[in-house]
Each structure stands twice: as C-alpha cells, then as structure tokens.
Design a protein around this nucleic acid. Structure first.
Length: 396
DNA sequence: AAGGCCGGTTTGCTAACGGG
DNA sequence: CCCGTTAGCAAACCGGCCTT
C-alpha cells in the first residue's frame, strides 16, 4: 500500500500488540466469577455491535408486550385466580417470523448469551392459551456426546451412544427460561422446565427426526442448586467438570481466527475439515481453533478453562428407558412412566399448587418482585452500569 | 505422571450477496 | 430495493490415547 493510494489503508497488524490484547482479555475474563462472566457475555452480546442492536430495539419492544404478567401482583385473590385460570401449553416455532420473535425474547430474558447449536434444534414458547402471552422459552437440541454423570447414571457405553445410535433418542435443553415476574414469584422456571417433557416435543421429535424421545437432559448455569430442583420430572445427577475453554470476546477472537486462517492455512484446513462422508462441522470447531490460537501465542490450553461446574439433570420418561439406551431391550418393550403418559395435565396440576404456595408465601412476607427482567436497556449501557443494574438479577 | 489432543453427534441461523 | 440464495460459522463435555 502506497501513500498516494486512495483506498482506505488496511490497519497494520502488530503481532505483539495483538497478542497482548488477546491475553489481557483472557486474563480479564478469568478473574470473573461465573455470574459475572455470564453477565459480561450478555453485555457483549448486545453491545459489541451497537448500531445493529439499536436498530433492533423497536422489534424488541414489541416482543416485550408478548410477556405474561399478572394484572396486579399485590392483589392476592385476583392473582391466585389468574394463576388458577392459566392454561400453559407448548407452542412450537415453525416459521422464520416466529424464530425472529423467539430469538428476541430469548436474548432478552435469559442471562446466558445465545448461540444456536449445530445439529437438531427445536424451538418453542411456553404460552398461556387464553391470553396468548408468553410464559417462557424452550429450545431442545442434539444431545451432548459426553456428560460424565449422565453416562454413569444410564450405564452408557460409547458404542450405545454412537454405533447403536441411542444418542439420537435423548435431547438436551439448550434454553429453558421463564419470563419474569412469572419465574421468581410463581416458580415459572420449574413450569417451563417440566414442559420440556411435553408430548408436543415427543411427537415432533418422532415426526421430524424419526426417533422416539426417551429422555430430556439439561444443565444449569450455576451448579446443582437451581430451578431444576424439586421437579418430579427431573432427577439431579451431579455436576459437570467444566473442562471447557473460556471464549475470548469476538473482537479478539476474530482477529486471531483470521490470522491463523491466513498464516497457518494448512493446519487450519486440517483441523477444521470434517472427515469424508460425515455431515456437519468437526466437533468443537471453535474450541479447536481456540487451541490453535493458544498454541500460536504460547498459552497453555489448560490455563483458561472456565471450570464452571454445571448442575446436570435428567428427565427419564420410561421405566425401562436406561435399558433401552443401553441397547438391552427393543423399542416395543418400552414402558412409559405414568406422569409422562399423562403429559401436560400432570405438569400443570403439579405446578399450579406449587406456584400458588410460593406466591402466597412471598406475598405474606412482603417479598414479591413485580419487575420484569428484560435485557433491552443493557443496549448502550456501560459495563459498570450493567453490573450495577443486573448482577443481582443474573438467574438461578 | 502430567498434560495435550482428538473423537464423537447431530443441521440451522444469519449476515452478506446478487439478481430481477 | 426487495427478495431468495449462499457462505460461513457455531455446542455441549469428557474419556482415552498419545506425547513429553
């Protein structure tokens, strides 16, 4: 590039400066406890491309109006009546405008940054049939291939999961979030969690992917004390080990991703190319690229594992489901557990009792939280202000 | 012994581009 | 300028084998 060129000059890449910026970012992230890092990623999600986020605000505001709220949360009689009259159900997302609304709400009510998973993916709203208002958001995806405590519980061998194809008979909840104020005041998180086992999902799984759904698993952000406790559908299996690399901010990742691509193209191709005849991306593609970056920059790959232990939960819907997943019995021999046979009716009946008890207690102890949690105002907010505003709210 | 690295499973979202 | 199309990019986790 010469000085008389009219093209805008490409910014000069200074290896040492960029290396330091990358490491500083990783260091910064690794000082954060799990709640803070989670919120930080949420803040990044909405603020790394501010003009784009700003442009989306009107649509976000519109989606906000879809959220269910009680008419007057301090009016005990009325509120209990409204809970009793709720008709929760699962509404599957089937078109692109539905997906857009779903993503708006997902990104605004969940403290967790949203990244769509490769593979199978089903999205839905939990809604009230009468008012049409949103109670929560659910997405189910291809199950994770390895989850220690789950595999131990099932007695799952590698062969069962892959060769026998049983991994396709379970799913993992990748988003299970209640709207507020339903979540906190009425245990909405437990309702939405339980609804992941709804016949609506089981039917679609069979129809769309051709396999019978045996179980729904999920992990919680902050260990084993979570919204999944005390739900008859789910069993707490333990904790994950957290051996996953912390992801740098996009700003720093993108620069080095690009650099590796250009300067180590041979190895990059080798690492990112899927084997012949296998669909989809290589496993953990971003984690692999990250470890290439680490290697290039002389960082030990174990240094920046996040170490966040997630709680692991499992809703096994059949009495002999584990035997099926271990390939010991045939599909025709499966026996569904009674509560799952009953489906949403069971779930709703169970939840309403709990919800009213919870609400009454909070009401009488003057501990109601009428506020809606909606990460729209985080757009354009400074990180300091965001911490002050939201850190106490970052989910359970 | 300790740490690095890879295998294993599944499509779908979304930004950018190009044609009418 | 508005579409349909396409290219690029993504998850979860851990066991076990390989290297130092």
């Amino acid at each position: 590039m010469q000085f008389w060129d009219t093209e805008p000059a490409k910014p000069v890449f200074d290896y040492d400066v960029e290396r330091k910026r990358f490491i500083d970012n990783m260091e910064y992230l690794s000082t954060m406890p799990v709640e803070e890092q989670t919120l930080y990623k949420k803040w990044q999600e909405w603020n790394s491309d501010l003009p784009k986020s700003m442009a989306r605000k009107p649509s976000l505001a519109k989606s906000f109006d879809m959220i269910w709220t009680p008419t007057d949360i301090y009016n005990k009689e009325l509120t209990i009546k409204e809970i009793e009259e709720l008709e929760p159900y699962v509404e599957l997302i089937t078109d692109s405008s539905g997906t857009a609304k779903w993503t708006d709400i997902r990104k605004c009510i969940s403290s967790m940054e949203f990244t769509a998973n490769p593979g199978r993916n089903i999205k839905a709203f939990a809604k009230d049939r009468k008012s049409g208002k949103v109670l929560g958001v659910i997405s189910l995806g291809s199950d994770v291939t390895s989850l220690g405590v789950r595999d131990k519980y099932i007695g799952w061998q590698k062969e069962n999961k892959f060769k026998d194809g049983k991994l396709n008979h379970t799913t993992i909840g990748t988003s299970i979030i209640a709207t507020q104020p339903l979540g906190y005041n009425f245990l909405g998180g437990k309702l939405v969690s339980a609804l992941t086992t709804s016949p609506t999902f089981r039917d679609l799984w069979k129809e769309k992917y051709g396999q019978t759904l045996i179980a729904v698993g999920t992990t919680s952000l902050y260990g084993i004390h979570s919204q999944y406790n005390g739900i008859p559908h789910f069993k707490t299996l333990g904790e994950s080990t957290g051996k996953v690399s912390t992801k740098p901010d996009n700003e720093f990742y993108d620069i080095w991703h690009q650099w590796i691509k250009e300067n180590k193209s041979e190895e990059y191709k080798r690492v990112t190319t899927q084997k012949e005849g296998i669909q989809g991306p290589v496993s953990g593609i971003k984690q692999r690229i990250l470890s290439m970056i680490f290697k290039e920059l002389g960082i030990k790959s174990t240094q920046y594992q996040h170490g966040f232990k997630r709680g692991v939960y499992f809703a096994m819907m059949y009495d002999n489901g584990n035997e099926f997943l271990r390939n010991e019995i045939d599909e025709s021999q499966l026996k569904m557990k009674k509560k799952f046979e009953e489906g949403d009716d069971y779930t709703i009946r169970w939840w309403k009792k709990k919800a009213i008890r919870r609400y009454t207690k909070l009401h009488d102890e003057n501990r109601l939280k009428p506020d809606t949690l909606y990460y729209m105002d985080i757009i354009g907010m400074s990180w300091e202000k965001a911490k002050e505003t939201y850190l106490k709210e970052v989910g359970r």
